[in-house]
Design a protein around this nucleic acid. Structure first.
Lengths: 251, 251
DNA sequence: CCACAATTCAACAAAAATCAACAATCCTAT
DNA sequence: ATAGGATTGTTGATTTTTGTTGAATTGTGG
């Protein structure tokens, strides 16, 4: 393991995409060295390489939000459009944070008169722009890479609302343990939203089925029968039991 | 995957429709390259192409707030860049709502470790994406065309913060009456921000000097001596007295 | 409908980035 | 101190990307 590896990974992951030249300037070495050092990283999938630059592929959990929105873009767009089919004009919905939620917000611009409560500033600002919507931003202090809030006031707002649907997401799905995320605060927000919502819509793209657990992960609260699961590909066989009661939809 | 892909998608999605020429200027490459890079994106449906420009698949351009951001665009971008020169890494700033504020938020992405409080969900989400920033969203219920909040909790948050600068805007400027806006709630937020800030930065483009009062307009609180006024052209003669004490900047 | 301007496309030339091989340098264990 | 191994910078051939040119196409205003 090279002595530059950590700095390299940090820099690329932080910015999403950095040119080889700039990296060589930052690390004070030749560009050839950058290529050499990055090759093993690319091989083991920690980085992605394009002509002239390195692009982060790191576990989506800690990518800048905008970079994450470009990972699996097509899948997420497809899922978002499927989710929107469930929602009707005039419905109310709670939306959690996560890149898939961002795409759902985009797609929901085709619906009118929505009542929305969310702890994601991105979702809030996207949907508040639509004339006729009623959007509440839950929370004050924003997390510094995705603009989501998990503070006390977020719960106060969520607990005051009663909504038809809640849109949830997960960092990965395990056949035995269910839907998992990395942070306790995300579970807490999901619980609060679920407690005040009619049916839940869990949106996960297929990459979440294959991903391995590397960090310790926490369970999302269990879904009720007839809640929706929206995904872009049929999940593997061994998830059948976990999803038995859910209304599964895909494009 | 090209290294320009992410920026291209972001820019087009953000603005709804961008001309090939402008994209080439933004990315610093020839227009032929824009066409080349965008072709695969168009093929896979991430973008749409028309003669002379690229259009986002999820059209956003017709939304009121974003439409307003495209009015006098160059002037507002220039002003935003001038404002950013005043702000240093690590500073704290309160930002009100308004289209110019949106551009300042964009431009502030070059600053690090900012502490920000704002009642605009758009500004909040833009700046919260930057790793290292500390952003507070003031308010819960969002106004339905620009995503700004003016409710009680907004004031609570603003009044708790003490910041170096406050960025304010105005709908029009009158030589005798000063800086004017249309809604009382906007004045109230501005007052609250001013009360807890060091120096104020008033950002207005030149069109605000010429505009006539059509609706009854309300006065923004008066600025202190040595507060900044940032604008894109020297204001007409008759404003001299009004601006006498201000530190006037333009590009 | 025609002429004029703007945009696009294809093809080629120029520039930039990559790779492999080799020489210089650094580190470390004896 | 020094040999062996690893790391780094340099060079030149190769590949990829980019800019430019001119012809074809599309849009526009009489």
């Amino acid at each position: 393991m090279s002595k530059y590896e950590t700095t390299l990974l940090q820099t690329v992951d932080m910015r999403g995409t950095v040119s080889v030249q700039e990296l060589s300037r930052i690390l004070g070495v030749s560009d050839q060295t950058i290529r050499r050092v990055s090759r093993p990283l690319v091989d083991r999938g920690a980085l992605q390489k394009v002509h002239g630059a390195l692009v982060s592929t790191k576990s989506a959990a800690d990518l800048p939000y905008l970079a994450r929105m470009n990972l699996n873009r097509e899948a997420k767009v497809a899922i978002a459009e499927e989710v929107v089919k469930i929602i009707q004009d005039g419905d109310s919905i709670a939306i959690d944070t996560g890149s898939t939620s961002g795409f759902v917000a985009q797609a929901l611009r085709n619906r009118r008169e929505l009542t929305v409560v969310t702890n994601s500033a991105y979702v809030a600002s996207t949907l508040a722009m639509i004339p006729g919507n009623n959007v509440s931003m839950a929370g004050t202090q924003l997390r510094d890479h995705d603009g989501a809030s998990f503070d006390r006031s977020a719960f106060d707002v969520i607990e005051r609302m009663q909504v038809d649907y809640v849109l949830l997401s997960a960092s990965l799905v395990d056949a035995r343990k269910g839907f998992l995320v990395h942070e306790q605060c995300e579970v807490d927000i999901a619980s609060a939203m679920l407690a005040n919502a009619g049916r839940a819509i869990m949106a996960v793209d297929h990459s979440k089925f294959e991903r391995q657990l590397r960090k310790p992960a926490l369970r999302q609260p269990t879904l009720k029968p007839r809640d929706y699961l929206v995904t872009d590909r049929a999940p593997p066989e061994d998830f059948a039991e976990l999803f038995a009661d859910l209304d599964i939809r895909f494009p």
